[in-house]
Amino acid sequence: MSNLESKKIVISERRKFLSLMAQSVGLSALGGMVWTGYLQEAKSAPLILRPPGARAESEFIRMCIKCGQCVSACPYNTLSLAKPGDHKPMGTPFYIPRQMPCYMCTDIPCVPVCPTGALDKKSVSSQIEGVETLDITKAKMGLAVVDTESCIAFWGIQCDACYRACPVMDSAIKLEYRRNPRTGKHAFLIPIVNSETCTGCGLCERACVTEKAAIHVLPLELAKGSIGGHYIRGWDKADEKRLEGISTDVTTHTKRSEKSATDYLNSGEEMFK
């Protein structure tokens, strides 16, 4: 009995404090991991169209304070804030073109009201006579993409709904005339989107006559390809200039390239080793 008593652990104030702290830190780490897991999932929504002037998605989602002032400023009720259940980053502004596209107001009321700069005024302004002026045609909200199989213009039916709805008419969407070999005497009026001038406003998607729009706006990073630096337009003098000052020694150095190419090709037996 006395043996047991002597083994009784004395819990000092210091030990109590330390173990309580350890417990709190541990619980915080547990909660933090669950929370981070949710955040990583919740903040990634590649299929979302942002208001004009929005910064790149990762930066936008960091800066947006979710106040909805862009939403209230929009005269067409284009924008809405993501609600729980919308499967989009909570509280951030977005629009669905088929329901309500961006009408590309020239005074862009949604951008200057942004208090945090998540909507960047500079990116939708151009210098006109040295003065920074709002310019909605510089907006890059997305890119219209045509599904050629469901677009009736590709059947040979004359439909230029998207072409006529486009606020950057005859530039963002051009009609390409092609001969219709089926009838032999008609033309296809094919809508072709130019990714450099298309703002992604979605008026074309709204105007499309098919049941589900055959032309639809996708976020830029999803819709656009990227050429990479190693292709150069040889016929374009400005592009050709990129070659200047580049080292001509672009040989790949491997074990086999120690000898020159002709030597290596002529030494037959080595080649088939």
């Binding site: 919740a42 990762s58 989602i61 304070i65 979710k66 509280g91």
Partner: peptide
């Protein structure tokens, strides 16, 4: 801390 780690205002998301 989570805002710093995940690059998005953590409490505002939830």
């Amino acid at each position: 801390i989570l805002s710093a780690l995940s690059g998005v205002a953590a409490f505002e998301m939830v």
